[in-house]
Write a protein that binds this DNA or RNA. Structure first.
Lengths: 327, 327
DNA sequence: CTGAAAGCGCTTACAG
DNA sequence: CTGAAAGCGCTTACAG
């Protein structure tokens, strides 16, 4: 690989001048600028980013830590993050915690020693304490999907109003005439959805047995198992609110296997609006999380922290009910 | 951030000695080794990877370029790539071409100037010529999902025998008694699947009208549209082989909307075995691509090229028929 | 076994 | 407008 030194010799100028040309600094005469560019072409020079990074103390790189990619929710968000970062000339280091927050911590450390300019962490992919410590050390950090856990005002976050998601989903079910409304949720991550669900039932003076709250692990299988438990109850529910689409789809599968018609025998509402929701049979009524907007906002915040030294902002986006066939 | 210099001063040794301790070089006395480690702890030192990279000429980083992540196929493969790379202490730079090979070229260039140790490119995310040029320049490169396009023997590749996928899918349909067997394929990417389909029909002396070959773009919507075209034919097919699961699912949707029963009125077979295939109604019969094995093999090959200077190998993995309800 | 020096390939004040 | 020098934070021979 050609280096700056090759260019310098060829153009018969100093290294500093080559650098100035490369970085479009104004203080170079047109003549030498041309000569340097010609030399760059001739030797086929590409700046070495590692050396630039070291000299500049900046890497134009963002670290992204998410729990997994097999969950289409994260895959879609990461896809948009990449697009937005690319547009701003940033590159992405991708790391997955795959269910182990300790693995997330290790990745955070690697990000730090690699001098990423900023770090985006989603869905509790690392322990809160470690993330906060990183932010306190001065590294720009943006969080999303952190559940109800308080992180204080000193860290940038963009969240979805999931309590509202629980409310509109439950309200829809009430409006459809249901009273035996169950919930399948992953706790504590989906605690706010539970709050919305409970508040809405209470407001309507509807009481449900405690067994109507089933826990899942946000996976298809988790939803399926939880639904089977609900169906085994002496008085099964006529409707179910699932904390995400994967579990809602699993619940539909279980109901289908038990010979139940949807939405006739059982109404189902999910949260997320993944692609599969619109294709299921019946199509899944859900509360859409604005993933694109979410990713955009995260990039906006992290760049603000990096480039403008803005102070950390916290944003809350509003989810949207998507009525389809399942409820 | 503490630097090596802080450690050096604290431990009253030379920088070289600190480096030797850090990198477990044998030639350090136990006493100084202890002193240095103590100093490292005390100042909270973390090596700066950028500086290490520059000095070593190696980054422990792999560049991964794929077309997209919203396609669960790539999301799943990337997930495994990350896991395997992580186990070998490599990190991932992720880049997406999002349908624009020229964007892929730009990412390849960035990878190069960032000194990634190796590059993995999937699904034609960059033009073949650029990828080959990169490999020729000495950079370790592994390809996958490159379609029938010849790349010569000088580049590492791991492919799936997709011709065989076309064969087993078509054979299954024949075995089920079908003769009016259509195909929905994205060309030229899925050319080998088409070859397998054609060869199998020919072997069975089954002839189908040319309209039975419909093109799709590997998306759900593409499959849906193609199926609608097939259904509008004077003599619609009784079975369809789709080039991937997304299109197969789309075809099922179209058939469903047209009031057709699956597999009674129409049998459907896909390729990939994405998670959704097992959950669809009816569940989708498909030819599974061993994604996990594929990712493992790619990492194995790229590390061989990087660390052992192995010569480029080309592997072909065998797909597996997964019979389910749709055919 | 340890230290001093050169080098990785850039950028950034600072003279001139 | 241009060059020489120092610096970014490490590693790697090479003396001793």
């Amino acid at each position: 690989m050609a280096t700056l030194d090759d260019v310098r010799r060829r153009a018969r100028v100093s290294a500093g001048t080559v650098s100035n040309v490369l970085n479009d600094k104004p203080l170079v005469s047109e003549a030498t600028r041309q000569r340097v560019w010609a030399a760059i072409e001739e030797v086929g020079y590409y700046p070495n980013r590692i050396a630039q990074d070291l000299a500049r103390g900046k890497t134009q790189t963002l670290g992204v830590l998410v729990p997994s990619l097999s969950n289409p929710y994260f895959a879609e968000v990461v896809e948009t993050l990449e697009a937005e970062a690319d547009a701003e000339k940033y590159e992405l280091m991708l790391a997955l915690s795959r269910g182990q927050p300790r693995r997330g911590v290790r990745h955070l450390e690697r990000f730090t020693s690699r001098w990423v300019d900023g770090v985006i962490v989603m869905g509790g992919a690392a322990p809160t304490a470690d993330v906060l410590a990183l932010a306190k050390s001065g590294k720009p950090v943006v969080l999303s999907g952190w559940g109800p856990e308080s992180t204080g005002p000193d860290i940038a976050r963009v969240e979805i109003d999931l309590r509202q998601a629980g409310e509109v989903a439950t309200q829809l079910l009430l409006d459809r005439g249901h009273r035996r409304i169950a919930a399948i949720l992953e706790l504590p991550v989906q605690q706010t959805r539970l709050d919305g669900y409970r508040a809405t039932l209470e407001r309507a003076s509807v009481r449900v047995p405690s067994k109507y709250l089933q826990r899942g692990d946000s996976s298809f299988t988790g939803g399926l198992r939880a639904m089977n438990a609900l169906l085994a109850l002496p008085t099964p529910p006529s409707a179910v609110f699932a904390g995400n689409d994967a579990m809602a789809l699993g619940a539909m599968q279980a109901a289908y296997a038990a010979g139940k018609k949807i939405p006739g025998d059982l109404a189902v509402v999910g949260v997320d609006d993944v692609a599969e929701a619109g294709r299921a049979h019946p199509t899944l009524t859900t509360v859409r999380i604005p993933k694109h907007e979410l990713a955009e906002m995260m990039i906006r915040l992290i760049l603000g922290l990096i480039e403008k030294k803005a102070s950390p902002e916290q944003h809350v986006l509003t989810p949207e009910l998507i009525p389809r066939e399942s409820a």
